[in-house]
């Protein structure tokens, strides 16, 4: 099962170290493959290097794609994490 959702990076510093690590930790809790797309770039949701290379700054629109049995749950958890601003402002 493939599900997709678009979210906007709300925190000021964008997708930097701590948010990336939270994202990776969350993605790893699920079996589904997670891909993050941003302005023509693509990152594996479990690769800190690729997520960093997305250079998703504050206000960037990213598309989350999850593929697998628990895709829906994964997407729910990951978009909630992003929308919370990773606990930052």
């Amino acid at each position: 099962m493939v599900v997709e959702r678009e979210v906007v990076i709300p925190n000021k510093e964008g997708l930097h170290f701590r948010p990336i690590m939270q994202f990776v930790d969350t993605a790893q809790r699920f079996a589904a493959d997670v891909t993050v797309k941003c302005e023509g770039r693509e990152a594996d949701g479990r690769s800190p290097m690729e997520l960093l290379m997305l250079v998703a700054t504050h206000g960037t629109r990213v598309r989350l794609v999850a593929d697998g049995d628990d895709a829906e749950a994964a997407l729910e958890a990951l978009s909630a994490l992003i929308e919370s601003g990773f606990g930052e402002t």
Binding site: F17, R18, M21, S47, P48, M49, E50
Partner: peptide, 15 residues
């Protein structure tokens, strides 16, 4: 946290 990221980055199988 910075070094935790460095560690994860270096261990990244994609890299």
């Amino acid at each position: 946290a910075i070094f935790e990221f460095h560690e994860k980055f270096i261990a990244d199988s994609k890299l």
